[in-house]
Design a protein around this nucleic acid. Structure first.
Length: 464
RNA sequence: GCUCCCAUCGUCUAGCGGUCCAGGACGUCGCCCUCUCACGGCGAAAACAGGGGUUCGAGUCCCCUUGGGAGUACCA
């Protein structure tokens, strides 16, 4: 049987990191087995669901490269089918009408809690045969009260639930709309889902859903409940932890491949390896290698991976993104891909890379004070003057190597280390104490521009 | 409270009864490289939650405790 998995987000907010990983695992499983991956938007909560949120989620998945094979199914649109399923259950005696009021139910639960019991609907309407026309009712599932239901989970193994623990859940609200567990079962069955891969927060729903499949006479799919992602403090991932929306990672300059790789390694592993291309992930991923323990989100490791991907990337492939983060025009300046090439091994995000690239296209308007204090002495000026002379003399023979040699020779002659001149030059060129190697920086900037910046810098700093 | 899940370095993890005085990676700390920042190289510190079993032998199996987490809605 062809594997078919789905990702079923509710469009009530961002696509967050946890959801993204669930989607990733589901997607990887399908791709690994040559199956299909589809989407279902669980928009049955009309109050909280928005079209914008749906779009944000789809954008997030697209950015991560998690492609889906069919147009997304909107759960709300399938309401008629859900109701049909409830009617079937009603007819076959698997469901019944419950006329209990909220007050009544609250009171019942309070009592149970007071007795130290797990709050459960006690089934008081199960045998009610009258149908008072003027009273609102919900439809409940008549769940078996003896025996056990076992979830054969691909990640957790067999999980056994006593049926007595499971109460008669509501299938249809008093306003006639279907509830989550019913809708999920009806939809997963209708969509031909063979493997339900989802967060382990759904594990407790699973026995109920299995019972529904059985009552409905539908084939029960395989389940895989993957561990949740916790925040750095071990608690549930939330807004408190800064970035939770995948779009925030995109905006902060992370590469989709890096995030995918990081997310994959959160809970899944393949021996001692850390870096996996998308193709490798598809080839190697399987549920058997997924661990059972919740993982904490580690920003630093993501940063490292992002840096790895940044370093490996072809400069040209980064150009468009860098341009966006750069925010200044690049015409007239050095070739952007060359600037990227010298910066990619010294950046851990696209934002950092763009920050490091900016001075190539925009002469410094001020100089880092601390750096100036540290690197400019009385002895600095003659060195700079010599360097200017050498640059002027170079003319067309100018090159990074030539400039580098000039610096070295000037410093040797003065009996000082190269840093005594290289650092001041760097500050004058870039405005700060950090840049790519001085020879490369000079080469990219070009002789004229370099001279201009050095002269201007001397004017501004030497008189001050 | 009750039900369910989980438990190896700070973090992600390898380990699927003996080859583990527990391996890798991130991070941290040294040293090297060096014109800055990085990269890279070398090295170090750092873990089987506790207690009982089972077994010739347990990080690996079982139980308990402890600690985390999830669920417990006419939300999804």
């Amino acid at each position: 049987m062809k594997v078919r998995t789905r990702f079923a987000p509710s469009p009530t907010g961002m696509l967050h990191i946890g959801g993204a990983r669930t989607a990733l695992f589901s997607w990887l499983y399908a791709r690994h087995h040559g199956g299909e991956f589809v989407l279902r938007i669980e928009d049955t909560d009309r109050e909280r669901s928005t079209e914008e949120a749906t779009q944000v989620i789809l954008d997030g998945l697209s950015w991560l490269g998690l492609d889906w094979d069919e147009p997304p199914v909107f759960q709300h649109a399938r309401q008629a089918e859900h109701i049909l399923a409830v009617e079937q259950l009603l007819e076959e005696g698997h469901a019944y009408r419950c006329y209990c009021t909220r007050e009544e139910l609250d009171a019942m639960r309070d009592e149970q809690r007071a007795r130290g019991e797990k709050p459960k609907y006690d089934g008081r309407c199960r045998h009610r045969s009258d149908r008072p026309a003027d009273m609102p009712y919900v439809v409940r599932f008549r769940s078996p009260d003896i025996g056990q239901t076992v979830v054969r989970d691909k990640v957790l193994g067999d999980v056994v639930f006593d049926n007595a623990e499971l109460d008669d859940l509501i299938l249809l609200r008093s306003d006639g709309t279907p509830t989550y567990n019913l809708a999920v079962v009806a939809d997963d069955a209708a969509m031909g889902i063979t493997h339900v891969v989802r967060g382990s927060d759904h594990l407790n729903n699973t026995p109920r859903q299995i019972q529904l499949y059985e009552a409905l006479g539908l084939p029960v799919p395989s389940f895989a409940h993957i561990p949740l992602i916790h925040g750095p403090d071990g608690a549930k991932m939330s807004k408190r932890h800064g970035a939770v929306a995948v779009t925030e990672y995109r905006d902060k300059g992370y590469l989709a491949d890096a995030l995918v790789n990081y997310l994959a390694r959160l809970g899944w592993s393949h021996g001692d390896e850390e870096v996996f291309s998308r193709e490798q992930l598809i080839e190697l991923f399987d549920l058997a290698q997924v661990g059972k323990t919740a993982a904490r989100f580690d920003q630093q490791k993501l940063d490292w991976l992002n840096a790895v991907y940044l370093r490996q990337a072809a400069p040209a492939s980064l150009q468009e993104d860098v341009r966006r983060f750069l925010g200044v025009p690049t015409d007239g300046g050095p070739e952007l891909s060359q600037v990227i090439a010298v910066l990619q091994e010294r950046s851990k995000s696209l934002v950092e890379l763009a920050d490091g690239a900016r001075f190539f296209y925009q002469a410094p308007t001020h100089y880092d004070e601390k750096a100036v204090r540290k690197h400019f002495r009385d002895t600095t000026w003659p060195l700079l003057a010599s360097f200017i002379e050498r640059l002027e003399a170079m003319g067309a023979s100018f090159s990074g190597e030539a400039a580098h040699a000039a610096i070295r020779e000037i410093c040797e002659a003065a009996g000082v280390g190269m840093g005594k001149l290289a650092q001041p030059v760097r500050i004058l060129l870039s405005g700060g104490p950090v840049s790519p190697p001085i020879d490369q920086t000079l080469a990219l900037l070009g002789r004229e521009e370099a001279l201009q910046r050095i002269r201007r810098g001397i004017e501004r700093l030497h008189t001050a």
